Simulated assay, not measured.
Amino acid sequence: MSAGGVGGRPEPEQSLTMRDVAERLGVSPMTVSRALRGQGGIGDETRRRVLAEVEALGYRPNRLARGLRSGGPTELVGLVVTNLANPFYSQLAVGVEEICVRSGARVMLGSTGEDPAAEREVVADLVERGVDGLVVVPSGHDHAHLAPDRLRGTPVVLAAGPPVGVDVDCVLVDDFGGSRDACRRLLARGHRRIGFLGLPPSLWTGSERFRGYALALEEAGIPVAERYVSRHRGDTALAEEAALGMLALPDPPTALLAANNRNTVGALRALRRRSPGEPPVALAGFDDIELADLLNVPLTVVSYDPAELGRAAATLLFERRDAPAALQPRRVTVPTTLVDHPTPR
């Protein structure tokens, strides 16, 4: 059923649907969907007509009808993460959901597989489904699709990475400080050859955690040796392979610093494969890992609360929703601490 309004136009927000937009233009709802998502399969002129009509009508999903259909809260928050296999994101989601529940909202989760193209599709789909806000863990450096005009006014907060080219709120971990502190701890214990199992430099976490490692070495008068550095996607198998390669060198590192929990697991697997008579290798890693206190290897971790990251992001999101024009883009940094897990007796 088409919505009625003044002059035959549908009333804004309360009753306008994608089908109404399609009927006014004489096209299918799928055509409207493709135009809004930037997909192919339609002509440029049709796309321009659809976008112009959407802008003129102020099309937004019907929140009240959505709540009546679901029998629950009338607001939805989209959470977009990069890797569901990483426990970090489950804890982040717990924090986001905690604040959303308090605010009478539900969370819709989307995963991008660390693919920027997939991220654009997931974000467009969530906006099309009518989410009232987005928390996004960015997977690339092109954030143009997260600009307010591209999201039709949907507020967005970035988590674990800063915005590039768009003015939006973000919540970060102290990646630089945590990595520097961990490397300093290893240096204070007498290590001078410290291997780094890092993340790609294209990632914010990858560049900042490497920067902390490099600065700690520089402060100690030790140059960064490329043979002790590996920078790849956080993958346990790749980290294990990289660690084994470093430990097979004629002058192997006496300590390893892993840039995230999955790299730490890879390093632990590499150390487990060493012969009993080989010299011990110290290990430090960013992100705490479950059962770290039960390992047979002494481990220092850069610890913080991923759930707090989620809570902070959701809090910024609801504040932005309530006062969109009154607030300048904000940046919140979640602190880190070093935790030593000695070998159990």
Rank of each mutant, 00 (worst) to 15 (best):
L327Q: 11
R184D: 13
G4A: 14
R185W: 08
C170I: 10
R180F: 11
L317F: 07
E75M: 15
G41H: 14
E114T: 13
D174L: 02
V32Q: 01
R311K: 12
E240G: 11
L199G: 00
A160P: 03
P155E: 06
G5V: 01
L283H: 01
R69H: 08
E278L: 14
P252L: 03
S2A: 15
R180E: 10
A35G: 08
P155T: 09
G198W: 01
S139C: 12
P335I: 00
V32H: 01
A307K: 07
V77C: 03
G43I: 04
R129G: 08
L257T: 00
A160Q: 12
V166G: 03
D132P: 02
A3V: 09
E241W: 04
G206E: 02
D44F: 05
R262C: 07
V173N: 04
P252R: 07
D305V: 05
A93V: 08
S103V: 07
V166N: 00
G133C: 09
R48V: 10
V127R: 00
R233I: 10
L51G: 02
P342W: 03
L327I: 12
L257S: 07
Y304C: 04
L199S: 03
R24K: 10
D125P: 05
V50Y: 01
P87R: 10
M108G: 03
E55M: 05
N263D: 12
I99Y: 04
A93T: 09
S202D: 11
A124N: 08
S179Q: 03
R269N: 06
G206F: 07
G58C: 07
R321P: 09
M1E: 06
V157D: 05
D142E: 08
Q14C: 07
A248W: 12
A243L: 11
S103R: 13
D181L: 15
I222K: 03
S111D: 13
R60A: 07
